[in-house]
Simulated scan of single mutants.
Amino acid sequence: MIRVLIADDQALLRGSFRLLVDTAPDLVTVGEAASGVDAVRLTGQERPDVVLMDIRMPELDGIEATRRICSTPATSDVRVLILTTFDLDTYVYSALRAGASGFLLKDTPPVDVLAAIRVVAAGEGLLSPTVTRRLIAEFARRPEPTRTRSARLDGITEREREVLTLIATGLSNPEIATHLHLSLATVKTHVGRLLAKLQARDRAQLVIIAYETGLVTTSPH
């Protein structure tokens, strides 16, 4: 059973998400938070698998709440799925840098929200094509990576670099397997090693690392 905490300052939306989550046979709501402060506190108490996190909330916004949850050892394994009505570049980048595993708009169809919860709970990062494009655009505006950041990749193999590059372009494990002529099991092994070596929470974090280290660039040098 996947345990879900809902954090949103609007009671009506919290109730709607709770009803949605509790109708799924494999999901259950373990709490509701009306502010970022409550979200952090309840996450520590309930240890949910996934937090549905609104961005604009009183006392503490969703991005800072996400950062606190993901950087606290006791709750660092909790996955945060950002839900917002604001489809803005800054939010996408900031939320993922804070440790969020996914980013969805509130008008996402209910069945897709449930699917997103399952994907994130399974340890996969969830980036829609629109979000991926915005994330890439954000990196395109940023300075070139420094040598220090690039050195972060020194411990990975050439094959792992290839896999990481393909992850950063949005390919799934089966697509990577086809592209590199590898078995799916081998690709999963490479992804697991990348997560461990780069100390990344999930695929969303691997995408950020690929761009920040300069392994993948948005334009020719």
Rank of each mutant, 00 (worst) to 15 (best):
120 V>R: 01
121 A>L: 04
122 A>M: 02
122 A>Y: 01
122 A>E: 10
122 A>F: 02
123 G>F: 08
124 E>P: 00
125 G>N: 08
125 G>A: 09
126 L>H: 15
127 L>M: 13
127 L>W: 05
127 L>N: 03
128 S>D: 00
128 S>R: 15
130 T>M: 05
130 T>R: 14
132 T>W: 04
132 T>D: 00
133 R>W: 00
133 R>E: 13
133 R>D: 13
133 R>Y: 02
134 R>I: 05
135 L>K: 02
135 L>G: 02
135 L>F: 03
135 L>M: 07
135 L>Q: 04
135 L>C: 05
136 I>A: 11
136 I>R: 13
137 A>C: 00
137 A>P: 00
138 E>W: 02
138 E>V: 14
139 F>G: 01
140 A>T: 01
140 A>G: 12
140 A>V: 01
140 A>F: 01
141 R>N: 08
142 R>V: 00
142 R>Y: 01
142 R>M: 12
143 P>A: 07
143 P>V: 04
144 E>I: 02
144 E>H: 05
144 E>W: 03
144 E>A: 15
145 P>W: 04
145 P>A: 09
146 T>D: 11
147 R>Y: 02
147 R>I: 08
148 T>A: 15
148 T>H: 07
148 T>Q: 13
148 T>N: 06
149 R>D: 12
150 S>K: 12
151 A>H: 10
151 A>P: 00
152 R>Y: 06
153 L>D: 09
153 L>P: 04
153 L>G: 06
153 L>Y: 08
153 L>F: 08
154 D>E: 14
154 D>M: 06
155 G>D: 10
155 G>A: 12
155 G>C: 11
156 I>R: 06
156 I>D: 05
156 I>C: 06
156 I>A: 05
156 I>T: 07
157 T>H: 03
157 T>L: 06
157 T>M: 04
158 E>D: 15
158 E>N: 09
158 E>T: 14
158 E>S: 13
159 R>S: 12
159 R>E: 15
159 R>H: 08
159 R>D: 13
160 E>F: 06
161 R>N: 03
161 R>T: 05
161 R>I: 03
162 E>Y: 01
162 E>S: 12
163 V>R: 04
163 V>P: 05
163 V>I: 14
164 L>F: 12
164 L>Q: 09
164 L>A: 11
165 T>M: 09
165 T>Y: 11
165 T>K: 14
166 L>M: 13
166 L>D: 10
166 L>F: 10
166 L>I: 08
167 I>T: 07
167 I>Y: 05
168 A>K: 09
168 A>M: 06
168 A>T: 08
169 T>N: 04
169 T>Q: 15
169 T>H: 13
170 G>Q: 09
171 L>R: 14
171 L>F: 13
171 L>N: 07
172 S>P: 01
172 S>Y: 10
172 S>A: 14
172 S>I: 05
173 N>K: 09
173 N>V: 14
173 N>S: 09
173 N>L: 06
174 P>Y: 11
174 P>C: 11
174 P>N: 10
174 P>R: 12
175 E>K: 14
176 I>C: 02
177 A>S: 13
177 A>K: 03
178 T>M: 06
179 H>R: 15
179 H>Y: 08
180 L>G: 04
180 L>A: 03
180 L>T: 03
181 H>V: 05
181 H>I: 02
182 L>I: 00
183 S>K: 09
